[in-house]
Design a protein around this nucleic acid. Sequence first.
DNA 1: CCCCCCCC
Length: 608
Amino acid sequence: MKLTTGVILEILNGATPEKPVFQVINAKKIESSNSVDRYRLLLSDGEYVYSHVMLAAQLNKVMENNGVPNLSVIEATRYLCNKLQGDKRVIILLDLKVLALGPEVGERLGSPTQLNPNSIPTAVAKPAVDSRPNDQKTAVFKPQNNNNTAMSTGNTMGQQMNSLGKKTLTPTTPNSRVHSIASLTPYQNRWRIRARVTMKSSIRTWSNSKGEGKLFNCNLLDDSGEIRMTGFKEQVDKFYDMLELNKVYYISRCTLKTANKQYSNLNNDYEMTMNAETVIEPCNDDSDLPVMTFDFVKLSELEQCKPPTAVDVIGVVKVCNDVSSVVGRQSQKEILKRDLQIVDQSGLAVNLTLWGDEANKFDGQGFPIVAVKGARLSDFNGRSLSVSGSSQLIVNPETKEAYVLRGWFESGGRNQSFSTYQSEGGSGGGQSSNWKTFLQVKSENLGQGEKADYYTAKGTVVFVKKDNCMYQACPTADCNKKVIDLGNGQFRCEKCNREFPNHKWRMILSCNVADHTDNQWITCFQDSAECMLEMKADELGQLRETDEMRFDQVLQDALFKSYIFRMRAKVENYNDESRLKTVCVAANSIDWKEYGNQLISQIDQLGI
DNA sequence: CCCCCCCC
């Protein structure tokens, strides 16, 4: 971990080397009564320690989360140096990447001496570091191998650094005041906002009875709120390439309309559409605007999220499947899709589906990291994620989370085994597992609703009813109707209206199962009954007729065994009497590791 | 002006 020795002096003398590496010796919060708090850093380059260093307010969150503890080695991905009155110079860090956390570094690197801000040597220690032309310089801040754009910003870099200290104001109409997004309504027409693009969709085309065309949309954010903006046809050509994720623009003259909440998850009653009059200009001074923030949910915590919902996730793409195509159920259109399996430090692997163009273009080589803002969580296979229209996918983001994740993956994470949600609780069947104790089943009045309630419970068989636990059924494959023994070797099925020389055995096993809270009478049909009795119904039927002692023993042996039960509970009414009828849909032997994880997540859920 | 998150 090498510091860029001597770089502080270079910067203070007007040089603009890219991505200098510093060590943060100390950070101090400067409280402000009339503005936002700011952090002041003591920064070392190994040669000098400089104290006039400020952090852009947008990075406050990182500091508050202790993301840059003392002694951390950082790379300044964006910075500038301003001259103040009296020729004082202050370095402002706009964006940084933590290369090593303080505790890992553990010591001051090099033997830097304090630089007196009032007498900065003019001599630059080293020759100019970067002799490349400017047009190359600006390009460096694009993230590596990523055509989806990155969350590390940086457009303004070139311009800002080339105009150190002489900050340009608005590119045009400098005197027209900037409105806040929250103040926009359809009832005003002279406005201008300054906002950051926090989501940018790909270009989509449509074709319906009203016509066809192309469009895209993006989300805009300022410190008052957010709004969705859509561009059609000509505006796609005019503005799509210009608008970049995470960058800031002055925007005016769009058409405001009431947002259809059905299609938008943004907190704004309105949305806007670009029109022929729309003006959009880049804004180079963006350090004061909020940036896209993520509220990452660990993959193991998806268990506690109730689908369907939107979550922010980040993970390493462990498996990247080929693109395939499916036909949309209602649109009847062919849609491309690609399934990824992402993993994180929580030891879970979850499916993440990409759609359309994004699926097509995705390059899964080299275990990329993906961050998704607003991924759609469904309960398919326990838990599944999908990059929906309102999600933003970012490949190989330059954030601390990604850095830590990469470190974990490369240092062994890639070789560990991961749990998945799919096999959880056995059957699943598109349902989330909905773990309950038998006491909860009663206290939460499961099965009282219109539809049956499904739940999962661990229980122990404490009683099995022997009487009427099996019956002779129609031998036709799909008919399980009870047959009438005609006493002449023939069995009659009323449903099939036929007589058969044989029958099959079907089970309806009534059991009482208990957990540590309560017990529950349940009905087990063929599959679950065979599972619990560890014998096929036909064999058991034979036994019942030929060896009742052994038959009894089979039922006896079923007792005091524990299973993960999948239940369907529904209150049934007959003769003015209502009672909860519980059918065991599946009885699965317990995978103790998985059950242990389940208990851990339940404990986590208690929040203690 | 569109998208209703697609499929298993």
